[in-house]
Computed example of a mutant assay.
Amino acid sequence: MKRNILTIMKWSFEIALVMLISFIYYLNMIVVTPTVVYIPSGSIDKIITQLSRQNYNVTKLDALILRFLGSPQKGWIYIGSEKVTRADFLYRLTTAKAATEDVTLIPGETTYIFLNQLSESLKLDRELLQKYYDRYSKYKEGEFVPNTYKLPIGISEENLIKTLLAASDRQMRELSFKIFGKYDKDRWFRYVTVASIIQKEAASIEEMPLVSSVIYNRIKKGMKLQMDGSLNYGEYSHIKITHKRIMTDKSSYNTYLYRGIPDAPVCNVSIEAIKAAIFPAKTSYLYFVKAKNNRHVFSCNYSTHIKNINNATK
């Protein structure tokens, strides 16, 4: 009887030892991970399930371990290494903070320039940023809402574009529902296109509804918009518009050549510019010119407009 008890104790010890060794081996297995990981909100089980769907080699045992370590941080977190032990990976899920960098998209800036900025600030591949923007955006321009974004250092080009597009779409969707009670993206982006010209032309937020009124008044009369700002698209964002450019640019952005608004937005626009496009001021203005104080002088007829031009150049 005593011998049986000793045998059982020996087996139990050996089993426990094997389990301990296996557990230590399990914790020391290598986990391959991006340096930045997105942790969804929810329970630990939900987090493990989501990570598994993202092709992380995590199991229900990891969920159990996390219950002892603590709940993982939510959002983008900085892991720091692409290859870590499972124990270190689970520990970092509960302790790592998001290492972020502020990147500001200025109202009126084009996506071409903004992607250059992102590439330089976050040390990302410019061609990949363009590739994923083209893949996930419906429109060539105007998909981003100007704002200051806290972006995780180490985020991939694909995740960055998806994150920015999702954040911008959410802001536009919320504003559309507030104004119209629904969100029709194609209809909305016609307003964004008008807003992009307003953004390029207006000297201030206060001027935006006035510039908007000129756009709609000229369209109503069948007049070409003839606005330089429409030609500050893409890589030409900061290029002064010349007579030669006006005569040679055959794109739909050339409002000297074509009537109506361009086929797509000129740039990324502020919420204020969108509101001005939806709610133009009620005026009879057809012209405006920048005065010496850098504000615009508006007029209803061409003769007054010429006088205003002459006054501005004196």
Rank of each mutant, 00 (worst) to 15 (best):
N4H: 06
I8C: 03
E14T: 14
L17Y: 09
I24P: 00
I24V: 13
Y25G: 05
Y26N: 04
L27V: 05
I30S: 14
S41F: 10
G42M: 02
I47Y: 00
I48P: 00
T49A: 05
Q54T: 07
N57G: 08
N57S: 14
T59F: 07
L66S: 00
L69Y: 10
P72C: 02
P72F: 01
I77V: 08
G80P: 04
Y91D: 02
T95M: 02
T100L: 11
T100E: 11
D102S: 12
P107I: 09
E109V: 06
S119T: 09
S119R: 09
E120Q: 15
D125L: 08
D125Q: 10
E127K: 11
L128H: 06
L128C: 05
L129D: 01
Q130G: 11
K131F: 13
E141R: 01
G142I: 07
V145R: 01
E157Q: 08
L160D: 08
I161V: 09
K162E: 09
K162W: 03
T163N: 06
S168I: 02
S168R: 02
S168Q: 04
Q171L: 09
M172E: 04
R173L: 09
S176A: 15
W188N: 04
V194E: 12
I205Y: 07
E207V: 00
M208W: 05
P209N: 02
V211W: 05
V211A: 06
I215L: 12
Y216I: 11
G222L: 12
D228L: 03
S230Y: 09
L231E: 12
L231F: 13
Y236L: 14
H238Y: 15
H238P: 00
H238V: 05
K240N: 15
K244T: 10
R245D: 10
R245Q: 11
M247H: 07
D249T: 02
D249C: 06
Y253A: 05
R259W: 15
C267V: 10
C267N: 11
N268I: 03
F279P: 00
A281N: 01
T283A: 03
F288S: 05
N294Y: 15
N294A: 13
V297M: 12
T304K: 12
T304Y: 08
T304P: 00
H305E: 11
N308I: 11
N311D: 14
